[in-house]
Design a protein around this nucleic acid. Structure first.
Lengths: 334, 334
DNA sequence: GTCTGGCCTGTAAACGATTACAAGAACGAT
DNA sequence: ATCGTTCTTGTAATCGTTTACAGGCCAGAC
């Protein structure tokens, strides 16, 4: 009826619990012992209890990846990369959603303290003192995919947004577009702030005047649509003031393209659109979206490697890795 | 240095471990006791060890949702719904990816046996004897979002694909489309088989001749593109033999639309396209995709509720819920 | 034949919580 | 003053593993 324990197996095999445990963990034992234990195990259908095991050995062999929004396709790219690395190291990956609020993340990190997983990989949208503090105090290793202050002393892997913006603006400028608008996500988020700064710098580097800019309420498709609508109305009804738009991520870009189509503007003929993240959505959208690849897959991979390394040795000095962007040119730009 | 345990808290507060545990779990205690324990707890920054706790109480308060492909947007709809229900019940949801192979799923279910989570919600693409057997033998409650034989005796929540197909064909027929092609996913999967059957029946119900059909290698965008290409070439180069295509899911539909555009066919003027799942992608695609809503959100919700109910009472008789489809009409059909 | 050394194996003590049970304190009633 | 009741607190067993330690056995060497 009830699930067999190691004691039951030991009884059935006529040996001690220690011997069963040893056989199960591949420690040296006589052939006969191995044989008896294995027979008993398969007869009873015994499966070790993960809770008891992890209580004793101090490891759960689970790693947690926390993302803000499962609906954002950039996370699937990252998730795939992370999963590959951690699976190869014998860990199972569990994914949790935090939502956009920093308090949720703090709660997650705090509650994480030894027990649920051996490590945490978190990609926070917003970072504040509390979050940094909770990460530093966290019992289990934490790696941040994103930007936190260097003085926080945590492993981070981040994108190079300014460089990405340069790539985007350079591409548009080389195609003769000079009136480049900007559709950002919330500026009070880490990526939002980085992209705003990067965009301004990039315009300056190419001697271009800012023509229009909006902030979406969050990094979603719906927010992209309403922000796009706003961009179009403020820019003047009869004639739009821009010939290109750089968007803070792919979802926003796709939302914008819907609004452009709604008012009869063609992409890329009338308005060129560049997204960021180069997620699967960029490829799936129509027209396919030129997008700045901020290296989500590589960031995921590197972050997972950092996490594994820190689990091995918690005293290593924190590393701060920056992944360089590239541009995936598709048909939303001329 | 090392993490404080309940014993440390007890020592610091000058009380017994039992008292600490009682205070932490809200059992009756004097005001002074509560106060002393809480001070010690916050001074030491004590957090209970989830492993030890779950070993003792026999629950982890975690539920696992296993999906085949995190890149498929239908799962994000479902995931959101599941997460909402289980969070309300005080559980945390962890998500794992199984991949398309049934062996991975069997391994997951087997390895699940008591320890990792208190319940499993699985949405398998392929079902075989082994999988059914492993589910029945599983120590923890399992709910299947999908179709397994009634005699398996497990809780299931499934979509009504045939009805969904009827909705799609009815809609197309009412718009005057009579030459309806079919772009299916792999027919050896549960949804693939159900949709093939449903499509054939639907054509028959409307007295329509089958004109063309293909099977994609899997339910992904890339597979949709190549299958779409195949559909177009076999159908004759100079003139396509269909004026509408029903696709087995949204990713396939979007892939197809890219291929249609590539050969200069307009959607919906030349070819109407209907997807299935009514995922976020349907709304995001261009043109927005008419899609059969198979109730992923409701299926997720109901499945989560079944799982919670079975955790409460493992002896209840298995339920088999069928969620009815509806049609979300968008601009990919006339 | 006895002793040393090396394997195996078994016993028992952890890991960090919860909780049954017992014991002590406080208090009111007789 | 004594007894009984109730409420609070502490002691210790327990969950199912792993693993340090000790004991037993056998073989080989003297």
């Amino acid at each position: 009826m009830s699930r067999p324990t190691i004691a039951g197996v030991a009884r059935a095999a006529g040996v001690s619990v220690a011997s069963v445990s040893r056989v199960l963990n591949g420690l040296p034992a006589t052939e006969e012992m191995v044989e008896r234990v294995q027979r008993a195990v398969s007869e009873l259908g015994y499966v070790p209890d993960a809770r008891a095991r992890s209580l004793k050995v101090g490891r759960t062999f689970q790693l947690t990846l926390a993302v803000a929004d499962v609906g954002n396709p950039v996370y699937v790219t990252m998730m795939r990369a992370v999963e590959e690395v951690v699976a190869a190291a014998g860990y199972r990956l569990v994914v949790t959603t935090t939502g956009p609020d920093v308090v949720d993340e703090v709660a997650l990190v705090r509650g994480m303290a030894r027990g649920y997983a051996d490590g945490l990989l978190i990609s926070p949208l917003r970072v504040d003192e509390d979050l940094v503090k909770s990460i530093r105090e966290c019992e289990v290793p934490v790696v941040v995919a994103g930007n936190v202050p260097a003085k926080a002393g945590v492993d981070t892997v981040r994108a190079n947004s300014p460089k990405g913006m340069l790539l985007a603006v350079d591409h548009l400028a080389s195609r003769g577009r000079t009136r480049i608008a900007f559709l950002n996500g919330p500026a009070d988020t880490v990526p939002g702030a980085a992209r705003a700064k990067g965009f301004t710098e990039a315009l300056k580097a190419y001697n271009l005047e800012p023509v229009a800019a909006t902030e979406a309420a969050d990094f979603t498709f719906a927010a992209g649509r309403s922000a796009g609508r706003q961009l179009l109305t403020t820019s003047g009804a009869e004639r739009v003031g821009f010939d290109a738009v750089v968007c803070a991520n792919d979802l926003l870009a796709v939302g914008l393209m819907h609004e452009l189509a709604a008012v009869g503007l063609r992409v890329p003929e009338d308005v060129a659109v560049v997204g960021m993240d180069d997620s699967e959505l960029a490829e799936q959208s129509f027209p396919p979206l030129t997008s700045v690849n901020l290296g989500s897959a590589e960031r995921g991979r590197r972050a997972a490697e950092l996490l594994l390394a820190r689990i091995e040795d918690n005293d290593r000095t924190p590393r701060r890795i920056v992944v360089q962007p590239s541009l995936s040119i598709r048909r939303s730009t001329p």
